[in-house]
């Protein structure tokens, strides 16, 4: 399913990426490409190896074998450089509860080396867009979960990364907030940011440009939601997922 576009247009390229923990192969020779500006859904059951694969792409963990590049940098040798060009939002809420909205933005912006004048400008404009400026001095810990997640996304993109990795960003969030969250994702995508997102919600999978399905550490399918549904003669992504995940050895 490899696209033969201009290499510049491929922001992620992965060949036979493998991660073993002892005798256990968490990620088993996966290969795929992600195009610049794309919303790429990375799906799979619990324990399928999504998070491990994502950690390798973020430079958090070294692959056992295989190769890949993210934003033009090698995942094996240039992990530190990758980190400077990506944003990351973990599946757990990951801002500091005991800092205010503004302080969190300043902290993470500062870590990525965004200049403070620029930072203030971006923070204000992003909060204004969310209609959240009035809450900028509120402690993050006292916000409802939906808001925290939206804020986490804002913080993950505050340094204008080329690509942002979202690890189950909408876990435990109500449908309305999820909807709003995806609007934010679309907005970022329309501005040219590549989105790499893992999710459990199959309705969300429909929002992605292309998705990959991981089962037992391997990529079982990779295509647009429409093509996948056609290929597996399914009415929804949910059905596609169940067809593919049948026979999975791992997960709960």
């Amino acid at each position: 399913m490899k696209t033969n576009d201009n290499k510049q247009q491929l922001i992620i390229q992965v060949q036979n990426l493998t991660k073993q923990f002892g005798a256990f192969t968490a990620v088993d020779h996966i290969s795929f490409d992600v195009k610049r500006g794309e919303i790429f859904g990375f799906l799979g059951a619990n324990g399928a190896g999504k998070t491990t694969a994502m950690r390798m792409l973020c430079g958090l963990s070294y692959p056992t074998s295989g190769s890949g590049s993210v934003a033009g940098f090698d995942v094996v040798k240039e992990g530190e450089k990758i980190k400077r060009h990506i944003g990351y939002m973990s599946q757990r809420f990951s801002l500091y509860d005991d800092l205010t909205v503004q302080e969190n933005m300043e902290l993470f912006g500062g870590i990525y080396g965004v200049k403070s004048s620029e930072l203030r400008h971006r923070a204000t404009s992003m909060l204004t867009r969310l209609d959240f400026l009035s809450e900028k001095d509120t402690l993050v810990g006292s916000l409802p979960l939906g808001w925290k997640q939206k804020l986490a996304f804002v913080v993950a993109t505050i340094h204008r990364p080329e690509i942002v990795f979202l690890d189950e960003p909408t876990g435990g969030v109500d449908p309305i907030t999820r909807r709003q969250f995806w609007e934010m994702i679309y907005e970022a995508s329309s501005e040219g940011t590549t989105i790499f997102v893992t999710t459990h919600y199959m309705d969300e999978a429909e929002y992605c440009n292309r998705i990959s399905m991981m089962v037992d550490g391997k990529i079982k399918a990779l295509d647009t939601p429409g093509n996948l549904k056609k290929k597996y003669a399914a009415a929804s992504m949910d059905e596609v997922f169940r067809t593919l995940a049948r026979g999975a050895q791992r997960g709960d």
């Binding site: 973020c58 430079g59 958090l60 530190e80 980190k83 400077r84 990506i86 990351y88 939002m89 973990s90 599946q91 757990r92 809420f93 990951s94 801002l95 500091y96 509860d97 993470f108 870590i111 990525y112 080396g113 993950a156 990795f165």
Partner: peptide, 15 residues
């Protein structure tokens, strides 16, 4: 680690 902020710090360019 528990809140996940450690992950975020680790993916950042901070050593």
């Amino acid at each position: 680690k528990e809140t996940g902020t450690m992950d975020v710090l680790l993916v950042s360019p901070v050593r």
